[in-house]
């Protein structure tokens, strides 16, 4: 849960007065036997998704949640394609080989 009046602090960690009020409200609702989902619904009804630090999974946040998977997927594909090409690379250009040899010679143990 995000504190609403602070720049970017959690509701639990904030010293602001409104955060205290909201904490109290949450405590009272918990005592009244409401579960997490109900309390969260209570807050988002009033303050919108902005109060949630964990954004809900819905069409406008699909890219957010699936993005990392997408990045990893692109990366894995690139890795695979590069490796495939590298493996069949027959002959290394002569100057490159010399360069590697030169570098190796200069490498102290």
């Amino acid at each position: 849960m995000r504190c609403l009046v602070c720049q970017n602090e959690s509701l639990a960690g904030s010293h602001a007065e409104l955060a205290e009020d909201l904490r109290r409200e949450i405590r009272e609702q918990m005592k009244a036997g409401k579960d997490d989902a109900q309390v969260i619904a209570y807050l988002t009804e009033r303050y919108g998704d902005f109060v949630l630090y964990e954004p809900p999974f819905k069409p406008v946040t699909w890219l957010l949640w699936l993005g990392p998977l997408l990045f990893l997927g692109i990366g894995a594909t690139a890795w695979y394609l590069i490796l495939k090409r590298r493996r069949t690379l027959q002959d290394t250009p002569v100057d490159e080989r010399q360069l590697v040899a030169a570098a190796k010679l200069l490498d102290e143990k």
Binding site: L4, V5, L18, D21, L22, E25, R46, Y47
Partner: peptide, 12 residues
């Protein structure tokens, strides 16, 4: 006690 304010989503 500020409860109505919270109901209206008042932040300040």
């Amino acid at each position: 006690d500020g409860k109505v304010g919270i109901d209206y989503g008042v932040t300040g």
